[in-house]
């Protein structure tokens, strides 16, 4: 088979693979949706949701009934025995609240806001923190891990590992509060919290990104170090050294390249989830992102938002897994998707 023919065959196999994965995703998403629905309504009833939205002062039974009617929670949960034909399934809370999500129509939250618009608005600030943290973090963690690998079994390596253990033993909250105290309160270098769009966002983003990167150094660098140490004992590395290549060359050209599969396994899958933001960082730095959207909705018993965010999270995770598979084929030609 010629090269073009081989490429065509690989492409068609990949497309078939992707279609199959997408089809697999549908039952997974239905299952996740069903599970979320069951969990939510085991804990909360539509009456509870109405009371939560209406407040505790002067709430009458009529007001509760009215709220349920206005928000579509006056229907049976999953099976409408009073309806006929398909209405038995479709005229239920489950169907009404779930069907639209498969065409990414998330509808409105229980307090009347457009969920799609809310997600679109809050995604940007979340990405403004998460993306630089992720990219800078990846470079820093891999570099630090490579350095430790380079100086493996020396005092420097031991010190690096000890530092990693110390860093990963400290709570993320400590980094945030400590960072705010030192950098913002004591040294007045950046605002303590807040956000702006465009160029003005830089001063608000610097500290959360720095803290995000520092907070991840311990665990991530240790993980990458382990991967590199696994690789460095392999035959191809010995061969490379025997050919007289410098240790730096061996590490960066051979070890790093061959360690890409385990690195990508952990890294690519989280890329789509970066949109969802970080709860703690966004809360403490006043970033108007998606980090707290789900937890706020759970506290407010807002099922419309909860199911939308769980659905989106599952979808993005599936996308992440597919991207990971695709990335394997890019870094290792031996990997075939079929």
């Amino acid at each position: 088979m010629d090269v073009a023919g081989d490429l065509e065959a690989r492409t068609s196999k990949m497309i078939a693979y992707l279609i199959r994965r997408i089809l697999y995703a549908i039952p997974i998403l239905i299952g996740v949706n069903l599970f979320t629905f069951a969990l939510f309504f085991v804990v909360n009833t539509p009456d509870d949701m109405a009371r939560m939205q209406l407040g505790i002062k002067r709430v009458t039974p009529d007001a509760i009934e009215n709220w349920k009617q206005q928000h579509g929670y006056d229907k049976p949960l999953m099976l409408n025995r009073a309806a006929s034909g398909t209405g038995k399934i479709t005229d239920t809370i489950f169907w009404q609240k779930s069907a639209g999500m498969f065409v990414l129509e998330f509808g409105f939250s229980d307090d009347g806001r457009s969920i799609s618009r809310e997600i679109a608005t809050r995604m940007g600030p979340s990405l403004a923190i998460a993306l630089p943290t992720f990219m800078i973090g990846l470079v820093v963690y891999v570099s630090f891990a490579l350095l430790m690998t380079l100086f493996r079994a020396t005092a420097l390596d031991m010190a690096g590992v000890a530092l990693c253990v110390v860093l990963m033993s400290i709570s993320g909250l400590f980094y945030i509060i400590g960072g705010q105290f030192l950098v913002s309160k004591l040294w007045h270098l950046v605002p303590i919290s807040g956000y702006a769009v465009g160029e003005d966002s830089i001063k608000f983003v610097l500290l959360p990104v720095l803290i995000g990167v520092v907070g991840g150094v311990g665990s991530s660098s240790r993980w990458y170090r382990t991967i590199f140490l696994d690789e460095i004992g392999k035959d191809y590395v010995r061969t490379a050294r025997a050919k007289g290549l410098s240790e730096l060359h061996v590490l960066f050209r051979h070890v790093l390249k061959n360690a890409m599969i385990p690195i990508l396994t952990g890294v690519v899958v989280v890329i789509p989830l970066l949109f969802l933001g970080s709860l703690l960082t966004e809360s403490f730095f006043g970033i108007p992102g998606l980090g707290s959207y789900t937890i706020d909705a759970i506290n407010a018993q807002d099922f419309s938002v909860v199911r939308a965010m769980v659905f989106l999270g599952s979808l993005l995770y599936i996308v992440g897994l597919i991207l990971t598979d695709i990335s394997y084929t890019m870094v290792d030609p031996r990997v075939r998707l079929s």
């Binding site: 509060i177 705010q180 913002s184 309160k185 007045h188 605002p191 303590i192 919290s193 807040g194 809360s283 403490f284 730095f285 006043g286 108007p288 707290s292």
Partner: peptide, 18 residues
Amino acid sequence: FSHEKETIPYWNKFLQGY
């Protein structure tokens, strides 16, 4: 009106005059 979810940044910004 700025949204401050946490009391620590709120308090420190008050002390800084913001």
